[in-house]
């Protein structure tokens, strides 16, 4: 893997998007599986910074993670 390919995987893993599993739960990002431990830690650190920035910018203080969770709640009856 080239350094550029590794960078791409790390950046991709910082999105709030996650694939849905067959049971409706969210699975890991495909890029996550291709990263080594150090790359995964880097993706985690970058994600924390991004989410802090997103929340600071949002009028309700919500990150893209929070918006993604709320979108799932509002688009389906998720109470068991």
């Amino acid at each position: 893997m080239t350094p550029e390919e590794r960078e791409t995987l790390i950046e991709e893993a910082t999105t709030a998007w996650r694939p849905e599993r067959l049971d409706g739960s969210l699975g890991p990002h495909p890029s996550f599986a291709d990263l080594d431990d150090a790359g995964r830690r880097e993706a985690y650190a970058r994600t924390r910074s991004l989410r802090a920035m997103e929340a600071a910018l949002d009028p309700d203080g919500l990150s893209t993670t929070a918006h993604a969770v709320l979108d799932r709640i509002r688009s389906a009856s998720t109470r068991t």
Partner: peptide, 16 residues
Amino acid sequence: FAAVVDTEAVLQESLL
């Protein structure tokens, strides 16, 4: 857990 599991997916599921 950041080096082992995708914490974003775990986090969203836990919040839900």
